[in-house]
Amino acid sequence: MSVVLGDALGPRGRRRTAIASVVSSAVLLGLLIIALRRLSATGQLDAAKWSFLVKPLVIRFLLGGLGNTLRAAAVAIVPAVTIGTVLALGRLSRKAPVRLAANAYVQFFRALPLFILIIFMFYGVSKLGTDLSPYWALVAGLSIYNAAVFGEIFRAGILSLDRGQSEAALSLGMRRRQAMWLVVLPQAYRRMIPTILSQSVTLLKDTSLGFTVTYEELLRRGVFVGAAGKDPLQAFVAVALIYLAVNMTLSRAARRLEIRQRRRYRAGSIDIAGAEDLQAVAAGASMGGT
């Protein structure tokens, strides 16, 4: 229900809402009809225009592209999370130079468009004497960029943990490093799972940038399919729907996990210090590279 209205409407409010419902349904329906008529007037709704999408060859080709997309995303996440952890620890380090270096990395790579980075990995690096394949250029760009994002996420996660946790660990006689690895990090990671998952959706979307370095992921294959049949509209709709299906599944999972976490930790998966930090990260990161 509406967040703003709070309690139930009276008779007049209900009547108004009912009228508004009818009117807005009519308007939305009208827009849909206009769109469909436009499509059919230009012949884009003809079955012949869509039938190529169910050819086994085309389906296999596109699903292969999806496979490449998923592979690049999965491979990029591993170093991104690893370096992200190192960065988060670095930013919370007691040594000023370490803090400075980690901060510089995070700030620099978060300010740089992912597109610029991936283009550099492919066209720039080859000028410097080493060639990266399109696949590795994409994975390297995604990893370097997302490491900065994960660094930010993990830092917020570590800060969100009750100080008592590390204090208790220290008073048990653990060293700072032990307290971090045995007590703080495991809890921080667990709290961060929903955020990690939603960042993975962003990362998955960003693999489409592989197109710009000729990596054969889903979008590039969609371009091929569309160009081959001269039906780019249908091909891109198919590509969009595939992305939608995969990402919605992941987003749903993230949301369900978040609700479960919230129940488990009562006040919310994230509270105390770092809450605003995290909110800012979530808003920025969810749009992230793309």
Partner: peptide, 22 residues
């Protein structure tokens, strides 16, 4: 819908796909 589709796909759909429907 919009949030779960990559921006690049939306760009291509609009720029290369939509002209087909005028």
């Amino acid at each position: 819908t919009i949030r779960n589709i990559p921006l690049l796909v939306l760009l291509f759909l609009f720029f290369f796909g939509f002209p087909k429907m005028g």
